[in-house]
Design a protein around this nucleic acid. Sequence first.
RNA 1: GCGCUCGUAGCUCAGCGGAUAGAGCAGCUGCCUUCUAAGCAGUUGGUCGCAGGUUCGAAUCCUGCCGGGCGCACCA
Length: 547
Amino acid sequence: MTPAKLADAVLAAAHALFAERGLDPTALPESTAVERPRNPEHGDYASTLALQLAKKSGVPPRDLAAGLADQLGRTPGIKSVEIAGPGFLNIRLDAAAAGQLARVVVQAGKEYGHSERLAGQKINLEFVSANPTGPVHIGGVRWAALGDALARLLRAVGAEVGTEYYVNDAGTQIDRFAQSLLAASRGEPTPEDGYAGAYIAEIAEGITRDHPDADLATFRSVGVERMLAEIESSLTGFGVHFDLYFRESDLHSRGELDHALTRLREQGHVFEADGAIWLRTTDFGDDKDRVLRKSDGEWTYFAADCAYYLDKRERAFERVVMMLGADHHGYIGRMRAMVSCFGDDPDTHLEIMIGQMVNLVRDGVPVRMSKRAGTVVTLEDVVEAIGVDAARYALARYSADSPIDIDVELWTRSTRDNPVYYVQYVAARTASVARNAAEVGLSRGDADSFRPELLDHEKENELLKALGEYPSVVATAAELREPHRIARYLEDLSGNYHRFYDNCRILPKGDEPIGDLHRTRLWLNDATRTVIANGLDLLGVSAPERM
RNA sequence: GCGCUCGUAGCUCAGCGGAUAGAGCAGCUGCCUUCUAAGCAGUUGGUCGCAGGUUCGAAUCCUGCCGGGCGCACCA
């Protein structure tokens, strides 16, 4: 019996009860859920349905709870139902019904935890989008970890996801980048407002080698391509693949800014003043109107944002998700207003996620500079310091709302206090048990030797409940755009596995003959490995066979 | 000044309106002759920033205040 099926049973009981008492069935929700109470005295699962229905039905909650308990008590697999407090239903399952889950999980394999909850939704996810004027810095690394995890999560719940990296290859920052390369190639000092760092000299040198007569235009075009190739390669090494690297220059060359301007004009929110073309974003709550085309005829960055948004919408994405650093949160107001100016609804078509700052900390002091980039800490620096797995886990483990310090010493430690090791250790332990089982001739066996009623130890029950919770954790994490929930869940699951391991011997001791308990526990071991591996995969972290 | 965000144990943080608010670290104390001790068990530690409101029920939702961070360009 999975929690989802139990929840269905609770709802079915409510329907039966309402019919029996002649109550209005429209008061019943379409679906309900059961909780995994922390306090074991509150049963294996708890439902608050009676509390929720009391007001709507006009029946006292404890009275409703009693009726529900009566109905539920007749459901196979349910051992007992108690009413507690104001009207909680505390439900206990038979060991056999609870234990079935081990088999459900193993048989579902990689699919366990997946659902169709967001099926049919087409979501565009844009993240990182660091300017191609230098390596990806640490803030972008957080988005790489979080954005990629979110893409995996959304796909796991059935959404159609397109991931994109917006390449700002058309603005004046690119001019400065080109001039910095040119200066470096001539051995001249970095121009004012230019880019410094060893990488500039390296790229300049490479371009000069391949294009001896390179002029500013060459440094510009080739420089951007090489920088972008480097960025893409470092992201690939980080396990992050983008479906599309979208170039701002394409918006210009395809005339998409004019197209967007036309559309905005049609909607009636464009005006001219002081020789510039403006979008009246104040119509939709922005604190000031925004320039689309400057008086000198140049498009603004904001105009390109408008065109890019329109482009995504015209590619049939119904939801446009963008991830920005906290220093860009001022964009939210104008972006939402812009969406409204197009006639869209910012609450349904746009979603802007804001992430707080990240520091790499060594010996209690923030690391400030990269060996290669000079002024910032880069993706390579983070990977070199703690490795891809730890970096991805550390960056995905915290809510994007909270600023984080990544302590190099902590995240490279091989102890309990390093969360990624704690979780990966379970992956290794479960794999080790499976290997040892195979060596002594123990296998999960067939359906006859899977005897879930034998899984009646407290720690087995706790582990089963944790495993059963996984699908709803995935669904919630996807809906709330909070990958950190996966990490926290995996840590909880890991604790449950270790306690099971400590209390319940899986393999036969010495000459002990192999029995159904050994086989059944092996199912539980393998179910745990499945969920740990699936969860880590959502975060882009490996599930090692050995450590 | 306006806006966004955060404020939970000594520290770092979980907690999508539910029961006695949880975990790791730090402190103290135990557990390895058979599956990985990179583990487990016990113990100490809280006016959930403050004040109101909504609710059967608030750390969670709303309002105000206090404190920290960030942002308010015809920059990109």
